[in-house]
Amino acid sequence: MSSISHPASSAHGPVARERAAATHVTGESVARYAFAGVRLLLAFEFLWAFGDKLFGWGLSTPTDRAWINGGSPTEGFLGSIEGTFAGFFNPMAGNPVVDWLFMLGLLGIGLALALGIGMRIAAGTGAVLMLLMWMASLPIDVNPFVDYHLLDAVLLIGLAAFLAGDTAGLGRWWSERSLVKRFPALR
């Protein structure tokens, strides 16, 4: 009997290399779709907040305090801040300019994430919004530093850097538009 094994059965043979390559592609695909899933979940988070503040679906915003019924989308959250930055945020509560900026931000960020386009702008503005909401939440009751606002801010930046809009989204198509090629920040 020969002690020489067939190259295909060797741990370093062509079959082993093909299996390793297939595993890598599969792992990469899983990562791409996982990040696309996170992108869509965050889109739903932003769009739900927009819809609830606009229509008052009764979960976070009562119907009688909905924006279309004369309520303010910022009054409840910003008006009730008692923490470290209360003096900064409380005066903004109910301001019509702040209401419009907040609502346009929720809608724009949510739509961009859902479609996978404009991810850089959505990530930047979304991260700023989440960081402001994190600051407004300080001090945090259950953890001295981390809450979901901070995690969402970091996730948004990662999604844009990973080009998460290209998978299960229109990001790749969007990147081919002449305007986006001319202004890469729109990617």
Rank of each mutant, 00 (worst) to 15 (best):
P139Y: 10
I121H: 13
F85G: 07
R177Y: 15
V142M: 04
L150D: 13
A20C: 02
A93H: 03
D99C: 04
A20G: 06
N143D: 14
L186Y: 14
T125A: 12
P96C: 09
T74F: 04
F46W: 13
H149N: 12
I117G: 07
D147T: 10
G116M: 01
H24C: 05
V142L: 02
V25H: 08
R177L: 14
G71Y: 02
G56D: 06
G13S: 05
R172W: 15
A16I: 03
S137D: 12
R182K: 12
A123L: 00
L111V: 15
L131R: 04
V25A: 09
F46L: 05
I109H: 08
S178G: 11
G108N: 10
G71F: 01
V98T: 08
T61Y: 01
M103I: 05
R120C: 12
A34G: 07
L150C: 09
G51W: 05
E18W: 15
P14D: 10
R182N: 12
A66S: 12
L179S: 11
L47K: 04
S29I: 03
W173E: 06
G158P: 04
P184R: 07
S2F: 14
S175C: 06
R182H: 13
N143V: 01
G87N: 08
G126F: 08
A49Q: 06
L54Y: 14
G126M: 02
W57V: 00
D52E: 07
R120A: 13
G79I: 00
P144E: 11
E28Q: 12
I81T: 08
G58S: 08
V97Q: 02
R32P: 06
A86G: 04
L41Y: 15
E18R: 10
A36V: 00
S10H: 07
M133V: 11
L40P: 01
L40F: 13
F85I: 00
G76E: 04
V142R: 09
G58N: 05
L179F: 14
L41I: 13
I157W: 12
G118Y: 10
L186H: 10
S5C: 11
A185D: 01
V97M: 03
G51H: 01
L59S: 07
F88I: 10
I140E: 06
A114L: 11
F55P: 00
H24E: 14
S178A: 15
E45G: 12
V25F: 11
V146F: 12
K181A: 13
S5R: 11
R19V: 14
A8P: 00
L42G: 03
S3L: 10
W48H: 11
R172H: 15
S80T: 03
P73S: 03
A49N: 06
A122E: 11
G126L: 02
A20L: 08
M103S: 06
L170G: 05
G110L: 05
